[in-house]
């Protein structure tokens, strides 16, 4: 396996980490106004992700940095091409991140509801737009011979990509609801159980629609390989397993199921793209070879990444262990 392939896989892994982890805390942010009615309840819900959301978000920054280092042309084309979409994501991430730290610092009800609103919007927008972005990458966009995206913002809002957005949005809501089920207790827990039961079917239907549309909107039919077929099988099985577990009231298993669905979806997307990173509708595909850094940079980065990523996984896992206890209204609400 060459280093370009290794880095393509590594970036897929970083996105998997990001979507798995940040996926549930987007979900929790979106569910905040629906499952928590009082200020204390909202505090419990926010505290369920309080110690970890920031670390989760670094997976995105690392994926972005890795793209920049390993595939500068991918980074440059994607970020300048999806300009306004990324601008909206940035604004969302800014207000969301600040809101987590600022909301508790004043007890005026309007101050609190302002930041609670920021958490909701700041979680909703990226949860939707990441799906739209990946849908567009998979479908192919207008990239010219100088590797420049020449389409418009509105070209990105095609029905296929929007369905992709709804898939990530609904999947993250379900993922977040199941996470909350494991972390909180009492009335909030009852509410998220109801939401998990109601959301499973829409998620599954949207996923089916997306896969069917993919057969026509992308070139997946000519590109079946081990990775995307395995990804598809994993995603479908995991989603069915999630549904089964929810109706058996085995929520730990169900959460594992939505997590595995994320893994499967990323494998499906990256497997279909390979060896391209951004297919072009104009015939100038960006591939892992014409977008990549020099061999030397890839070698250096490989040594660093393969050493550090396992350590990151270890200490992040440790933090989840430290904060494993279920939060109740009686918990000391430290913030």
């Amino acid at each position: 396996m060459d280093l370009q392939t290794l880095w393509f896989i590594l970036i897929a892994v970083l996105f998997t980490g990001f979507l798995f982890l940040e996926g549930f805390d987007y979900g929790v942010g979106i569910l905040l106004p629906f499952v928590a009615k009082t200020d204390d309840e909202r505090r419990v819900v926010i505290n369920s992700i309080g110690p970890v959301w920031d670390g989760n978000e670094v997976w995105l920054l690392t994926a972005g940095g890795a793209m920049f280092a390993a595939f500068p042309n991918w980074y440059a084309t994607l970020f300048s091409g999806f300009y306004l979409a990324l601008f909206l994501i940035l604004i969302a991430l800014i207000v969301r991140g600040v809101a987590f730290e600022f909301r508790s610092k004043d007890n005026h009800p309007r101050w609190r509801s302002l930041w609670d609103g920021a958490i909701f919007i700041g979680s909703l927008v990226p949860a939707l737009l990441w799906g739209v972005a990946f849908g567009n990458i998979l479908r192919g966009v207008a990239i010219d011979e100088s590797m420049t995206y020449v389409g418009s913002f509105f070209d990105l809002l095609n029905p296929y990509a929007l369905v992709g957005g709804l898939v990530t949005l609904s999947l993250f809501i379900l993922h977040g609801a199941l996470f909350l089920e494991l972390k909180v207790d009492g009335v909030i827990r009852d509410r998220v159980k109801t939401i998990a039961r109601r959301f499973w079917l829409p998620v599954t239907l949207l996923a089916v629609v997306f896969v069917v549309l993919s057969l026509f909107e992308t070139d997946i039919r000519d590109n079946f390989n081990v990775a995307n077929v395995a990804g598809l099988v994993i995603a479908v099985t995991a989603l069915l397993w999630t549904g089964y577990s929810i109706f058996q009231a085995r929520y730990g298993r169900a959460f594992f199921g939505t997590g595995l669905t994320v893994v499967g979806v990323v494998a499906l997307i990256f497997g279909t793209l390979f060896p391209r990173v951004m297919p072009s509708t104009l015939g100038f595909d960006l591939t892992i070879y014409n977008a990549s850094s020099s061999e030397y940079t890839l070698q250096v980065m490989t040594v660093i990444a393969l050493t550090v990523v396992p350590i990151v996984l270890a200490y992040q896992a440790w933090t989840y262990w430290v904060f494993r206890k279920r939060l109740t209204m009686q918990s000391k609400l430290e913030y």
Partner: peptide, 10 residues
Amino acid sequence: GAPLAVEALV
């Protein structure tokens, strides 16, 4: 890009 990626990682 390399130092930015390393910054995020380490």
